[in-house]
Design a protein around this nucleic acid. Structure first.
Lengths: 203, 203
DNA sequence: ATAGGTATTATGACCTAGTCTTAATAGCAG
DNA sequence: CTGCTATTAAGACTAGGTCATAATACCTAT
């Protein structure tokens, strides 16, 4: 490291270095900045940055939660209202991790995921699977905006349900979709049900 | 804890306990199983389970990578071939985290995300955004199956591109989609481009 | 019953990556 | 020269381990 930055500069740099390598130890930081370990510790203290093990632990916990919420939850977003077989509302807070870095525009599949999982959740059956979906993005969604998706089962015949979803941000429509969702009794039915889609059904 | 399990039982239980709380320490494990810390260490040694800090570190790293690959990467899945403006192929390995727990069937939005991001990546422009999408799930996708998506830009007029995507598992079609993707020069155009969609364009 | 093996527990030295406290030193400004 | 900030050092302690060595306990087969 270019020997001796001013303290203020070092503090600033320290934050960013730790941020993009949270696993780094004080010893390593000390050698990077050409100062003693004690100085690094004082700096961390001043900046309120916890020790490396603590940082690691938090990362692990956060990430675990995040993956759960993104991937494992049965519904993407928070279900705030459901009438099974009829309608439901879910809310999804977007953040910069969901967006393209360059533009901060949320990737399309997030709105889709919210709408799709809501549509599936509405169908009153043991197992429900999406057969087809037609969606429209009305305006780009920016990181930080709150997506409110409202879904309605508009018709159903047999195991086939048509669900319409409209997603708004502060009352403004940003996304709409129409999903064909199939209720399935046992998983053996699945192939038949979804296979059947290709024979008919065109939006 | 019910005092004294047989060693084999303890080893088995130990694995599962650690698995669903990787942060747990040997001390805590010892008190859970009513054995000494040393015994727990020997057990871990036997099972090849690393210490709690190491487990935490791995969790943090894995999760970090995972979130990157799931959320931050510009494309969902691995791009294995791209001819900008023409065609591309991406591969996505599914796993149980992407699936409904009960059925091990992969949530619909993953196939969508792969196809959508591939479609967007193909469009040769500074920024490209999805306007509409029509997709069809031909058969359920099971956790562990490898999705190979092949996308082709079938036409474009001005900033509007039609991209068709077909996703297969071991040669079998499982998902198809047609995406309208808009190339955007500056982000000011975005609203106009996407707003324009609703005036026309029906699949 | 006694020898042998497995399982368990204990002990002590060492490690990393810190904590917290106290103290010494360096460099500069008024 | 005094005072201030910044830096470094030293010492004692912590958690959560590793590794090696040894003692004990319990069961089983001869």
């Amino acid at each position: 490291m270019n020997h001796r930055l001013r303290k203020s500069d070092r503090l600033e740099k320290l934050s960013t270095v730790i941020e993009d390598d949270p696993f780094i130890t004080d010893r390593e930081l000390a050698s990077i900045f050409g100062v003693s370990i004690q100085t690094v510790r004082l700096d961390r203290l001043e900046l309120g940055i916890p020790e490396s093990r603590e940082r690691t632990r938090r990362l692990a916990e956060d990430a675990k939660k995040k993956i759960r919420s993104v991937e494992t939850g049965e519904v993407i977003g928070d279900l705030i209202h459901v009438e099974l077989g009829q309608e439901g509302i879910s809310v999804l807070e977007t953040d910069k991790d969901m967006a393209f870095q360059r533009t901060a525009i949320v990737r399309g599949h997030h709105a889709f995921a919210q709408a799709n999982s809501l549509a599936v959740a509405l169908v009153d059956a043991e197992v429900a699977l999406t057969g087809t979906a037609t969606v429209r993005y009305l305006r780009p969604i920016r990181a930080g905006e709150r997506l409110v998706a409202r879904a309605e089962v508009v018709s159903h015949s047999g195991r086939r349900h048509i669900v319409k979803v409209a997603t708004k941000i502060a009352g403004e429509d940003v996304f709409t979709g129409e999903f064909t969702v199939f209720a399935v009794r046992d998983t053996e039915d699945v192939a038949k049900a979804q296979g059947g889609v290709s024979r008919e059904d065109c939006p």
